[in-house]
Every structure is written in C-alpha cells, then in structure tokens.
Simulated assay, not measured.
Amino acid sequence: MKRIFRYIIPEEDAGKTIETFLLEHEYTPTCIKFLKKAESLITVNGVWEFVNKKLKENDILETVFLDEEPSENIPSVEMPLDIVYEDEDILVLNKPDNLPIHPTKGYEYTSLANGVVHYYEKQGIPFVFRSVNRIDKNTTGLVIIAKNMLSGSILGESMRKREIHRTYLAITEGELPEKGTIDLPIGRREGSAVERCIDENGMKAVTHYKRLQYANGYSLAQISLETGRTHQIRLHMRAIGHPLPADVLYNPKFEVIERHALHSWKLEFSHPITKELLSFEQEMPEDMRNILRSI
C-alpha cells in the first residue's frame, strides 16, 4: 500500500524544520523514523531532504508511506467482506460472528485480517493489517482498519484519548434499569489466558448503558464505553446481574442465540487526515433481531 501526502507550506510555517512541521501534523516519532529510512520518502519541491531542513513559504513538502510487503504471518484467504466505507486512509467493515480480528490458534486462516490481506492482494497491493478498534470473535459489527502508518498512528492516539466513540447494542437477561453507569475494574482471571474478572486491583473500566426495550425476560440495551478493556461489556453486564445470553465464558446459556448477543452498532470519529467527522451505523444481525421478534 502506497500513500503520498502533499503539503504547501503556508507563511506561518516558514522557518520550521521538516521534523517540527510533521510533528505538528500528528506524525509520531515512529512515522518520522520510517520516513528517514530511505531517500525519496521525504521531498521538498521534488528533492530529497533531511528532516532538519528548514521550510520556506510555498515549498511543496511530500511524504511517502510505502508497505512493500504484506503483514507477516497473515496468510491471504479469500472470504466475503462487508465493506461499509473505504477511502485512501481507512476501511470500515461490518464483521460477522465467529470471526476473530487477527489470526489465532485454530483460526490461522479464518480471521478478518486474512480476508483483508486477500482483498488487497487481488488488487496487486501489499497490505499491512492495522486494526484500530478490536471486538471479540463472536461480537458482530463495525471495525476500523487503517490503510497506512500515518492514519494508523493518528487513529491509535484517538483511541487512547477516547475520541473514537463506540456504541454497542446488547441483549441481556432480565430487566435492566432504565439507565446506569458501571465502574468496576477488570483484571485477568488467575490461571486463565483468556478469561477476565472483576478485580479491585485491575484496570479501570467504565460502561454506560440505557435500556431500549424489555419483554419476556430479556432487555435490549444501548451501551457506550469510556474504556476498552477485554470482555468489558460482558463482564460488567454479568456483574450487575444481567449477563448476555450464550456467553460461552461467562453465561453459557444457548436457548435463544448461539453466540453472545453483542453488536458493534455505531462508530463516531474524526477522519485521521481530513478531520471530517464521520459516523457509521450498522443494524443488528438476524440472530439478535430474532430474539427481539420472539419477545
């Protein structure tokens, strides 16, 4: 994947070094280190320059991010992709259930990453897979993929600053309160590489929820996250007595659905390059809608 960024230097940035200018445009030190690796990745008016070069008004600065090889250890595997949005910098996908984001043991050839690598391989494009938000294997819904190092680093920082707003839909057992906030720390369960637990010595985790519907023993909830801990929604809902049905780790009851009833419904964030405010929604999959029909 190749991406070229072009800047015409305004009067107020004249006299700044290339490095200072790039840092002010959200380039991380890692991005700048990459650009310094080879000639032609940083040019001013078509001429390769060091990053300590001072810029003049109306100079044309170009940076080039180039992935010459695809991600290591991610085999290319053809699979259908539900593409919600794509441009030069990001890819937004609707992930189905029973599909991990990255290859894992037992899913070396059946992950979202395998399919994305193949999608670009068909176009003759080496692709490094950079997932911005991660959801569990059996959680469905919206996932952001960064298409180059710069968009990945900017969106990664947006995640750390909680500037990417994630809203989920979940079906829980019992009648949820109308709304509430759960503030319970989460840590690893001793002796397990997978399970997490509520742990007073764990990492801070905050979940906000609102009940949208209740009938026949199940609630439909809209859930937003302040933090993004592993299994956060699943653990927090169980902690207040309203676990998700069919949660194989925390509530293995499969009467109404075959996987935990959780869907990444809405994402709102600023585009990493254009800064345009983006908002995406993806309706619940059929298995969750079937529970609602039944109640």
Rank of each mutant, 00 (worst) to 15 (best):
R3W: 06
Y7D: 02
D13K: 12
G15S: 00
T17W: 13
T20P: 01
F21N: 01
Y27T: 00
T28W: 15
C31F: 11
K33M: 12
K36G: 00
K37C: 10
A38K: 14
I42D: 08
T43S: 11
W48G: 07
E57W: 08
L61Y: 04
P70G: 08
S71K: 04
D82L: 08
D89Y: 12
I90Q: 07
I90W: 11
N94M: 10
N98L: 09
I101Y: 09
G106A: 00
Y107V: 00
Y107S: 08
E108R: 07
H118T: 00
G124E: 07
F127I: 06
R130N: 09
S131F: 09
S131W: 02
L142G: 04
I144E: 10
K147L: 14
N148L: 09
N148H: 15
K161L: 15
T167P: 00
A170V: 07
T172Y: 03
E173G: 03
K179T: 04
T181D: 07
R188F: 02
S192T: 02
V194W: 08
N201L: 13
R211N: 05
Q213M: 13
S219D: 02
L235R: 06
R238Q: 12
A246K: 01
V248H: 10
Y250Q: 02
Y250N: 04
E255M: 04
H263D: 08
L267G: 07
F269P: 08
S270D: 15
H271V: 06
T274A: 09
T274W: 15
F280I: 02
I291T: 00
